[in-house]
Design a protein around this nucleic acid. Structure first.
Length: 151
DNA sequence: CGTTTGACTACGC
DNA sequence: CGCGTAGCCAAAC
């Protein structure tokens, strides 16, 4: 895939964010990407598509390094599933690591983001680094019958 | 040196 | 709700 301009810096930012994810919760490629401003020269509309792919690239670079300081297993796709090819050794390891942290998978191998989704670092942590508030990882609550209807 | 191949997501059926 | 596809292009083969 296309690599971001200055991919070294981009990857370093991704890793720094991923290191903030606590055990027992998960984030997604798009969620991480939404916290990083589009690199200079990249249109926002293009970044929406490319950012998540670049985050995946950053995760790929981690596993080869076997870097224990980056909890790569806590980054999954927007559907709540593991994006590594099914049946591969590394995909099984990701699921095993997450289950060891208490994350539950449903029958289809998906994680409920409304239960295990990470909300992101504090606003202060992000602001100190010039990063953006994440787009919410959790789906908006379904229409609540008890909710007060204004109309 | 041409082809294939991706740690993705939004969108249309 | 599930499945297929476009967009994108550096690397691996």
């Amino acid at each position: 895939m296309n690599l971001p301009p200055n991919s070294t810096a981009f990857f370093a930012t991704v890793w720094e964010i991923v290191r903030q994810i606590p055990a027992g919760v998960v984030s997604t490629y798009a969620h991480i990407a939404s916290m990083i401003p589009p690199p200079t020269g990249v249109e926002a509309v293009d970044y929406d598509r490319l950012g998540p792919v670049w985050v995946g690239k950053a995760m790929n670079a981690v596993s080869f390094n076997d870097n224990p300081t980056v909890p790569w297993q806590r980054v999954i796709n927007s559907q709540g599933g593991i994006s590594l090819p099914e049946g591969t050794r590394v995909a099984a390891e990701q699921r095993m690591r997450l289950e060891a942290e208490g994350v539950k998978f449903d029958r289809k191998g998906r994680i409920d983001l409304n239960t295990y989704g990470w909300d992101g670092p504090s606003a202060g942590w992000l602001a100190e680094r010039g990063l953006l508030p994440p787009r919410p990882i959790k789906k908006p609550p379904a229409d609540n019958p008890n909710q007060l209807k204004l109309f």
